[in-house]
């Protein structure tokens, strides 16, 4: 790799890592199932790198990256519409706009999440750790835990709601102090 290529590579990585979490959250909003959204994110990363030389101003990276993520997600969804119900283009467009506009707020919530995770019970934390491991299937996890898949889905849903309420509370308290 030449010095120039190395520099480009380093610059890309720095920008990508800076925005990766936001992009991941955005892609997750467009693509049903966590595993599919992980797969799409890999494609997003590959396309961003492949097209990186096209970008003229690094100040535009975020907007450009969200555009690429939206495009790649929509391509993925087009192939899946036959076997899964997904949103139409207008909903995806509105989500893209809202996601970009609220990026700072989501970042603040991610920071607050660390505090909130400590407030979960041991059982809740264990469930979150296991359920979010790559490749884990909820039905298999449920079978091992002696519960139904639906019960596990609902438990995870309740934990997420509790965490959302908690992050909102943490941020509200931060504003007061």
């Amino acid at each position: 790799m030449t010095d120039s290529e190395q520099h480009r590579h380093d610059l890309f990585l720095r920008l990508y890592v800076e925005h990766e979490e936001s992009l991941r959250g955005f892609v997750r909003s467009l693509v049903p199932t966590l595993e599919d959204s992980r797969e799409v994110m890999q494609d997003v990363a590959a396309v961003l790198w492949r097209k990186f030389e096209d970008i003229t101003s690094m100040d535009d990276f975020r907007r450009w990256a969200f555009g690429v993520a939206r495009f790649v997600s929509m391509e993925f969804l087009r192939t899946r519409r036959r076997d899964r119900h997904v949103f139409g283009d207008e909903a995806l467009r509105l989500l893209a706009v809202a996601s970009e506009e609220a990026e700072d707020a989501f970042e603040a919530e991610r920071r607050a999440l660390n505090d909130c995770l400590h407030k979960l019970t041991d059982d809740q934390r264990t469930l979150v750790e296991e359920a979010y491991k790559p490749g884990v299937r909820i039905d298999e996890l449920a079978a091992r835990a002696g519960r139904s898949a639906m019960a596990l889905y609902k438990s995870l849903h309740r934990i997420r709601i509790a965490l959302m309420n908690c992050t909102q509370q943490v941020l509200a308290e931060e504003e007061l102090t």
Binding site: E21, G25, V27, R28, F106, E109, L113, Y132, L163
Partner: peptide, 11 residues
């Protein structure tokens, strides 16, 4: 979007 960002962050 808050829900999806939280879901993604948990991963």
């Amino acid at each position: 979007l808050r829900y999806t960002h939280l879901d993604s962050a948990l991963a």
